[in-house]
Structures are given as structure tokens and as C-alpha cells.
Design a protein around this nucleic acid. Sequence first.
DNA 1: ATCCGCGATGAGAATAAGTCTCATTTGCAG
DNA 2: CTGCAAATGAGACTTATTCTCATCGCGGAT
Lengths: 140, 140
Amino acid sequence: MPATEIIERTLARGGYRLTAPRRALLEAMQDLDDHFTAEDVVTAAPEVGRATVFRTLRLMQDIGVVCQVVLDDGSVAYRLTSGGHHHHMVCSQCGAVADFTSHDIEDVLQQLADRTGYEIDAHRLEMYGRCPRCRALPDE
Amino acid sequence: MPATEIIERTLARGGYRLTAPRRALLEAMQDLDDHFTAEDVVTAAPEVGRATVFRTLRLMQDIGVVCQVVLDDGSVAYRLTSGGHHHHMVCSQCGAVADFTSHDIEDVLQQLADRTGYEIDAHRLEMYGRCPRCRALPDE
DNA sequence: ATCCGCGATGAGAATAAGTCTCATTTGCAG
DNA sequence: CTGCAAATGAGACTTATTCTCATCGCGGAT
Ligand SMILES: [Mn+2]
Ligand SMILES: [Mn+2]
Ligand SMILES: [Zn+2]
Ligand SMILES: [Zn+2]
């Protein structure tokens, strides 16, 4: 949950202009669910042009403020992120996404690289299941 | 690299009809690269209807004959698979995809689940980097 | 404070990607 | 062989994303 201010500073640091549309989109994304589609953003910020939404989404990914989540049906959603490498756990019941990091996972991947001769310089791990809260619920 | 025959048996086992279009698409996919888009298949099998290509792609995923690969730009490609749970390593230089399985990874994920209280019933891991062959090449 | 250049924007068209409809075909169980 | 439910395909349709280009406005320089 990155503060608007931090994000704006990140933008500036990258040499990007701090424009009204970018501010508006940022705010819109913060008001949206924990993950959202490009179209959600278009709808949530009708005053901003469609092209700008897509451009901004890409920009924010580049500077690490927004990340992609691959849902279990293969579709992609976006999500504000506090930056840094991490993974996702998507609850199939309530739809919530949680961020995860794990040294163990990174270690195992490094070992895999060593063992196979591949040079892994990025990876993506998405997990699907049920969150503790949903598991605790009575119902089916 | 599953033999056509095995796939056809898998189809039959699932109670699906062994139709000419399905045969044609299967052959087309085998002739394509190690991964391909839906559009690639449409092009490679012009005699088969567009809708059937998409339907068949989904069907083959359902029966485990085709899997999705999430590329590093977030786009999705398809790939014939010998079935079973596995992960991908995508070479950013030559584009080749290799399948991977690792007990260590599965173990670590199970531990993560235990520790966090999440119930993980599926996951997706894609790795990006360079394959041994490309690393061995002289050039930049 | 003002200016100016270039990055950024938006309306809308264009393209890409995937889905739907429904009349016709066809695999295959009986 | 027959009958019929499953499967197909043409092409329209919907949805997603990119492109174009005239105009705008952020922010470094003065
Ligand atoms: Mn990781
Ligand atoms: Mn796995
Ligand atoms: Zn949940
Ligand atoms: Zn390679």
C-alpha cells in the first residue's frame, strides 16, 4: 500500500513528469479493488483518455509501482505494489490477492539454475487456493 | 513431445470425438515452434474454422495435452505438453521453452502453505533467462 | 515570474484478439 | 446402417489494445 507521495517521488526520480492524468489514475487505482483490469481503470477515471490509461499502466509497471497478477484462468490483472520482487497468492473464493516473498523459493530457484545450466534472471510465481480467512468460514 | 497416437487416445478416453479438424490442428501444432499463439494455429491450419481453433485449444488444455506459457511480457502462448504438472524456462535469447519439474520447489511451496495458513491447490511458475546453449555462444 | 521545448495527452479510428450464432455436418453407439 | 448429439465453420460481433496526430502543459532554464 504505497503512499501517493512516495509514488510521485518515484515518478520524478525516473525523470517522468508529474501530470494531472497520472495523479488521477493513481488515485483511481488506490480506490479500486486489490487488483483491477485496465478497463476498470478506464471506467474509474473517465476524465482520462483511454490511451493514457494503458500508457500509464505500462509506465507504472516500468517504475515498479504496479505489477501484473496472472489469474488462474490465464487473464492478467494489475495491482499497486510497494515495489520489490514478490509473488502472489490468489484466493479462488474471495478473489483477494496477497503478496509473498520467500528466501527459500529464491534459493531453490538458484539451485535449479546451477544444476541445469540455465541463467535465470527473472521469474514469476503465482499461487491459487484459499486464504486463511476463507478457510475459516463455516459454509462450503 | 507426445505422439499423435497418444493424444488421440487421450481424446477418446475423455469421451471426445476424434474429428478431422482436431486431427488437423494437432498436426499443425506439432509442426509449429515449441510454443505458439492461437493466431499461429489459425494461420497454420487455414482449413479449420477460427472458432474451432479456440475451442480445440481449450479442450486440449482441459485434457492436459496443451499448456499455457506466460511469456515475460505477460502475453500467453500455448505449447504441446506430455502432460503432468511442470514449469517453464523461457530463453530470452533464442525463445525456446523448456519444461521443468522440481520436488524442491513443490516442497517449499507446501511449507509456505503450512506456514501462512493458505491452502494452495495450484500454482504457476515461469522462469526467464538464457538457456545453456545460448550462454555458450560466443557473441554478445 | 515567464518562456519554451519536448514529453504527455485525448478523441477517435484502426487493429488485434476472442466469442457467438446457428444452420449444417459428422463421429460413433447401437 | 441409422439417428442424433456433438462438433464445425462462416462471418458477424464484442472486447481489448494500439495508433495517429494535433494540441497541451510540466518543469528546467533564464
Ligand atoms: Mn521469486
Ligand atoms: Mn510446481
Ligand atoms: Zn479468500
Ligand atoms: Zn536460448
